[in-house]
Design a protein around this nucleic acid. Structure first.
Lengths: 253, 253
DNA sequence: ACCTGAACACCGTTCAAGT
DNA sequence: ACCTGAACACCGTTCAAGT
């Protein structure tokens, strides 16, 4: 269509001035935010930057490096948001480690909500980026400053896992708006699948009255559930810290 | 190479006898187990079944349906393993809901360890498969049978999230054997990155003595950490159940 | 040093034919 | 009803060439 029309040679020169790895990363983030991660192709990305696809390869080795760059952009946003808050609340010497850790993780989640593709991309990286390492290092630092033992902190980081970066652990999270709502949620709530999934149906019909729509499964409050799960872990860790225990109750298998 | 040699027309006839959706799913699982999920192309899959690529489209609508089928195979394996155990231990009327839930989840993890590609594929599905629904329904049933309230069970499922299916929540899990070990773990353990990641380094040098290698980051016991995190959640849920409380400590932000 | 166009080796999938 | 070969529209990426 406009393929022929856009052949005007002049205005693109200003565009590509200063094409750089960082600008490529930022453009990739914008593209994924606006059109979804599956629209992120080297050709689309180049077009967004007013350049041909192959020009990108002068600034990144391959697409993996673009994805790495995107992770850096997002996690840096988390750092920035946390730093900003720390400045506003003037250090907060009175805050417990639990408050501080909780705040940092909820900030991470808040940032990730703006980049729905980020968990998938972060999880796909085979090498952990320095920015992500810094995030975990900061979190660990907060716990250590609160006097939590090295060993407990170690296990705490494993227990939090990707949740520490704000990942929602929901199994069914619609990837984007127009996705069909997974199972026929409406049918479940009407009780039509009660014979197949009696207990899920029970929850659906009872709990659906308590909350508004506009959440993952239609009747759940994602923010509440995230905080619920996070607090379950943090409270448990705090208890272990206070009692000097290390492992939760050992179970007979 | 052998492309010309394999043109012998006879033996393939026996192969494709009874090509079916289930056989396609099973072959896809085998292929992904043996050669990794990135080797799962329609062409490779067809070849494995002694058939041309386009023949597959008579049994599945598209590649998504193949992936759906693979999820069914894996989750069915979990059901089978649990059923087998239930038979062996003769019902187990004396077992608490915590024991039962714990066992089912650890079984799920054990099964998933044999299919490293499974978490990624399961997470990529936009629609939750009936098999997965059944798994969650069973889990919910165990809690309800133990007298846990509908509301608490609801939140418990969110808190467990994909962990209920045996997902490890590790952020950096090497996708396959030959992956480079993410960050230069050796360098961290030698303390060379102490200035960048002081707290991670502290954990690495102190904790690396306690465990053997051959785990995610080289010094961590993945099974221990999975159980630690799981028990943290289950113990917390049990406490809420016993005290009749619903939400963990509310935090000031 | 930076950018480009054509081309290559792969994908998933459509289509018109074959049996 | 089931299978096939050629082809299409896309990928990421290589290469030789332009400035």
């Amino acid at each position: 269509m406009a393929t022929r029309g856009r052949r005007t040679p002049r205005p693109r020169a200003t565009y590509r001035a200063g094409l750089t790895r960082d600008r490529v990363s930022q453009a990739a983030v914008d593209l994924a935010d606006e059109r979804g991660i599956e629209a992120l192709t080297m050709r689309n990305l180049a077009q967004e930057l007013g350049v041909e696809a192959m020009s990108l390869y002068h600034h990144v080795a391959d697409k993996n490096e673009v994805l790495d760059g995107m992770v850096d952009v997002v996690v840096s946003e988390i750092h920035a948001r946390v730093a900003e808050f720390d400045g506003a609340s003037a250090g907060g010497a009175d805050s417990t480690w639990k408050r501080a850790v909780r705040h940092r993780i909820l900030t991470a989640r808040d940032v990730l909500l703006g980049h729905p593709w980020a968990p998938g991309v972060i999880a796909s990286r085979t090498t952990m980026s320095p920015t992500v390492m810094r995030h975990y290092d900061s979190l660990i630092g907060l716990l250590r400053a609160g006097g939590v033992s090295v060993s407990l902190v170690h296990h705490a980081m494993h227990a939090l896992g990707s949740r520490a970066l704000g990942f929602t652990q929901e199994l069914y999270a619609p990837k984007n708006e127009q996705d069909d709502p997974g199972m026929d949620v409406a049918a479940i709530m009407r009780g039509e699948l009660a014979s197949n999934y009696p207990y899920i149906t029970e929850i659906a019909v009872i709990e659906s009255g308590n909350h508004d729509k506009d959440s993952t499964l239609g009747w759940c409050d994602d923010q509440f559930e995230f905080e619920f799960g996070l607090d379950l872990l943090l409270d448990g860790l705090e208890k272990l810290h206070n009692t000097g225990q290390l492992k939760p109750d050992v179970q007979a298998t």
